[in-house]
């Protein structure tokens, strides 16, 4: 009887430890699945209104919009937050800090359409074209300037992973500085 009790205890410990080990190794499951190409939380904001014209994957529309913007007198800045379906805390932090930067410092540019921002799931095949263009196969943050037909891109993914989660102020400063430079 005693042996049976001990055996039962050991089985419970094993099962519990196995579940615990699986849980700590799979951080992606902590975040929600997202398949939308545009975050629902952006609905109703100026950012959402301005990016409606440039839904990715619709190549014709996208290139048309880009070429239209290129004809304008002022540069237009595109900001792309790429992510996979199962997101890690840093990836989420990058998106949140980007939103914070845009809402805090560039709300008028968003309203005017001089900044267009997209949050894209690279696992969604509708985003294949744009993901390939930016070579974004996982989390990524790209800032692109389009002016007089010339396109310039800065990859801020590394800075995002370095600072967005634990040093948000620094990340915001880097992003703000790049956007300001590209708006000139």
């Amino acid at each position: 009887m005693k042996i049976r009790n001990h055996l039962g205890t050991l089985v419970i410990i094993f099962v519990f430890a196995f579940i615990s080990a699986c849980h700590s190794g799979d951080t992606g499951k902590k975040s929600s699945n997202q398949t939308d190409t545009i975050k629902p939380e952006q609905k109703g904001t100026s950012a959402q209104a301005s990016i409606k014209n440039t839904i990715p994957g619709k190549t014709g529309e996208n290139s048309k919009t880009n070429s239209e913007e290129a004809k304008a007198d002022l540069p237009v800045v595109f900001i792309y937050n790429f992510h996979v379906t199962n997101r890690c805390p840093t990836c989420i932090a990058i998106e949140e800090a980007t939103t914070k930067t845009l809402n805090t410092y560039f709300s008028s540019e968003l309203k005017l359409g001089r900044i267009k921002r997209q949050v894209l799931n690279v696992d969604d095949k509708v985003n294949n074209l744009i993901s390939e263009k930016y070579q974004a196969f996982g989390s990524g943050l790209f800032v692109t300037r389009i002016f007089k037909g010339k396109e310039t891109t800065t990859d801020l993914t590394g800075d995002g992973f370095k600072f967005a989660k634990n040093k948000e102020d620094k990340f915001i400063e880097i992003l703000k500085s790049k956007i300001s430079e590209y708006l000139k």
Partner: peptide
Amino acid sequence: AYGATLAVTLYKNGKELQSEDLSNWAFQ
């Protein structure tokens, strides 16, 4: 290095001379 950071540092006579941040490169 407040998040994922890759850096290489140069040493001479046990002293660190310079450091280069390769994080953006690594993610690319």
